[in-house]
Design a protein around this nucleic acid. Structure first.
Lengths: 234, 234
DNA sequence: AGGACCCATATTTGGTCGAC
DNA sequence: GTCGACCAAATATGGGTCCT
């Protein structure tokens, strides 16, 4: 009846899935806002629903863009990557009711390739990516039947923390930790009623965390109000 | 004692802030994962803590990058933007204990400018942004004292949903809704114990939501395993 | 359909303790 | 000091209902 617990798998019912999306997305956005206030962090969230064909972003387009910038500025060499197939656990999670729609499947597969490509050519400049995307979008078609979601394969990629000046022998340990984390997360995190489960899942100590080393320190105008009175008013 | 409620403001205590960051970040990541499973959506989360100087991303670098790409591919003209100063409410929220550190302040102000600039020159190609960032990072200095966070001014910018083919008279209404949403969110969302408060806050019906129109539909290899056996295994 | 509310349960989270 | 476990209060969220 009330206070229902639902399985962690694709919600078949169309309307309830939609409403769940809205609710939880709002919930996440709220939590994001809270976190940013509580801990003074910059946080950006991007939700793209293929179902509804809409893109939601928090907290704003401009802010997000800035985060992109920072994100991309991270030297690739400073990051080690480990890929793992997420799919096995996904399918397991998505149990039976696998509504397979060939069209969707095809679409998904294509996206998968795209993703893989992106990871392989990680060094690509974003401009190239943009270019590619633009080209793709030109002769883009949209499968209008939103019938099935098709448990499409995904992957998880764990970025590991590397300090250029940090001893490299920590690497092995880090990797193990990630392994551990990954397994635990995938296993417990889902539905298996682990007592209290992983407590810090999704964020293993220093892993999946890339440290930045440079921050800027240039000079700036005294009074921002003079420049942007209507926007900035301390 | 236990089950404590905390005020929605910057956590002064260093260690508890740190632990809260970890906990809540993990929580958000988990929720993100759940949402993506439940509703088959792509979701990316980026958390940059200036405090700890680390960047966390979900679900992966590559995935995030792909989302960036999609995000940037949204034609600017299809989006209307409304800016509002977030600061008044922020300061109100961050009440007294305003640990003002000049160094930090300066730093923050600079970032603010940067942000504003980004929004103003929203049309900029990301490459330019990257270029700028790289240049900035070159003679970048890092203020080592992580002493104070300084409730830095922020802004919120509400992107509104616009379909090129959608009637434009909806605009006014949309804006009003956003206004309403913004006010409600800022007011109730915080600490005022509104009974149940805004239920869909953080995600006003069609606002803060940009719709995409194109999706790709090219041909692709039959068996992805043949190409990426170790990564992709359906 | 879609949104606002209600409400009972499911989860998350803060503070604390103990081990490493 | 970092991490995991614990526990109770605080929230988030499913589902129903009543509107529009």
């Amino acid at each position: 009846m009330t206070g229902n617990k639902i399985k962690l798998e694709w919600i078949v019912n169309d309307s309830s899935r939609k409403s769940t999306l809205k609710r939880r997305r709002a919930g996440i956005f709220k939590k994001a806002g809270d976190l940013s206030t509580l801990c003074d962090v910059e946080i950006g969230v991007l939700v793209y629903s293929q179902d509804e064909d809409d893109l939601a972003v928090w907290p704003s387009y401009g802010h997000m863009k800035q985060m992109f910038e920072r994100f991309l500025s991270i030297p690739i060499v400073e990051r080690s990557e480990k890929m793992t197939t997420y799919e096995g656990l996904l399918t397991q999670r998505v149990t039976q009711e696998t509504h397979k729609n060939n069209m969707e499947k095809k679409n998904n597969d294509k996206k998968e390739i795209q993703e893989i490509m992106n990871q392989i050519f990680e060094g690509d400049k974003l401009m190239q990516l943009e270019e590619r995307e633009r080209a793709r979008r030109q002769h883009a078609l949209r499968s209008t039947d939103t019938l099935a979601p098709a448990p499409r394969p995904r992957m998880i990629e764990v970025d590991e923390a590397f300090q250029a000046h940090t001893s490299t022998e920590a690497t092995c340990i880090e990797q193990l930790m990630n392994d551990n984390w990954f397994i635990e997360t995938m296993a417990l995190n889902q539905d298996m009623p682990g007592p209290s489960g992983v407590s810090d899942m999704g964020m293993p100590s220093g892993s999946v965390v890339d440290r930045m080393n440079g921050d800027n320190e240039e000079d700036l105008p005294e009074d921002l109000n003079a420049f942007f009175p209507h926007i900035y008013s301390p």
